[in-house]
Amino acid sequence: MLPLILKSNLQFATLKTLSLVSISVMSPQQSVQEVFRTADCVCFDVDSTVIRDEGIDELANFCGKGEEVKRLTAEAMGGNMTFQEALKKRLDIIRPSVSQIRQYLEEFPIRLTPGITELVKLLQDKGVVVYLVSGGFRSLIEPVADKLSIPRSNVFANRLKFFFNGEYAGFDENEPTSRSGGKPLVIRRLKEQHGYQRLVMIGDGATDAEASPPADAFIGFGGNVVREEVKKRSSWYVTSFQELIDSLAVQTK
């Protein structure tokens, strides 16, 4: 009996060692791919990731303030102001009303990035919880969530405020995504509240890359716009959601 127990323990120890060795020899890209294939939660950025456009720029164009906002965006990208300052200044220029947002949504249908619908469904069918985490506006992002069958309670974005007459009244500065470091804060809270063990962040921007850690892995996305800084910081950088779909397909074979 004793030799059998020793043999069993030895086999277990050998398998454990082999598993650790296999993980240790993975490349950084393979490690991220493995986390993605076994994820229990995936968070997507929205603008230029889930959808093909940048919501605030498109809304500014619609409201006739495109060039002013574009100049301010360039200034903000130069690091001359915080994210929240840039957001406030841009919104003070646009000052979108409830009626303008409603008209914008009616006249400009959502342009989902190819492959995102299939990818989200695949993840959800596997039991993976999907969230949208964005520095954009909830009023523009909730329709995107509806289209992808993602609960609105799984949307983290900025809330616009309006007066009773529907005119613009500001934005909720208490929303984490309205300031620098907001996305990491959202992800940290999700992990604390729900106990996610393998949470992946996917997005095109620097604020998405900054979310890992606390995210267990980050996948850079360049299907709509390629940002070299993000590409350099990504162990796994994809230019099509089909690459992620194919990765999940490999796991199920």
Score class of each variant (00 low, 15 high):
Arg198Asp: 03
Tyr168Trp: 07
Leu160Ile: 08
Ala157Glu: 10
Met201His: 04
Val144Leu: 00
Leu185Trp: 01
Ile150Asp: 12
Met201Ile: 12
Ser180Trp: 00
Asp172Tyr: 06
Val186Gly: 05
Gln193Thr: 15
Asn165Tyr: 03
Pro151Glu: 06
Lys191His: 04
Tyr168Phe: 14
Leu185Lys: 13
Gly203Val: 06
Arg152Ser: 12
Ile187Lys: 02
Glu175Met: 11
Glu175Pro: 12
Tyr168Asp: 07
Asp172Lys: 01
Pro151Arg: 10
Asn154Ile: 02
Gly166Ile: 09
Gly195Ile: 09
Ser149Trp: 02
Tyr196Asp: 09
Leu185Glu: 15
Gly170Cys: 03
Phe164Gly: 15
Glu173His: 11
Glu192Ile: 08
Lys147Thr: 15
His194Glu: 13
Asn174Thr: 15
Val144Glu: 07
Tyr168Glu: 04
Ile150Pro: 15
Leu160Thr: 14
Arg152Met: 00
Ile202Asp: 07
Phe171Gly: 09
Arg198Gly: 02
Val186Gln: 00
Glu175Ala: 06
Glu192Cys: 05
Glu175Asn: 12
Gly166Cys: 08
Glu142Thr: 15
Tyr196Cys: 08
Ile150Arg: 13
Thr177Lys: 03
Leu190Cys: 09
Ile187Phe: 01
Glu173Gln: 14
Arg198Thr: 06
Ser153Ala: 11
Lys161Met: 08
Glu175Cys: 14
Phe163Lys: 14
Ala169Thr: 08
Leu199His: 12
Thr177Met: 04
Leu190Arg: 06
Arg198Lys: 14
Asp146Tyr: 04
Lys147Trp: 04
Glu142Ser: 13
Gly182Lys: 02
Gly170Ile: 07
Arg152His: 13
Val144Tyr: 04
Glu173Thr: 15
Ser153Asp: 12
Gly195Asp: 14
Gln193Cys: 10
Pro151Gln: 12
Phe163Gly: 10
Phe162Gly: 05
Val200Gln: 05
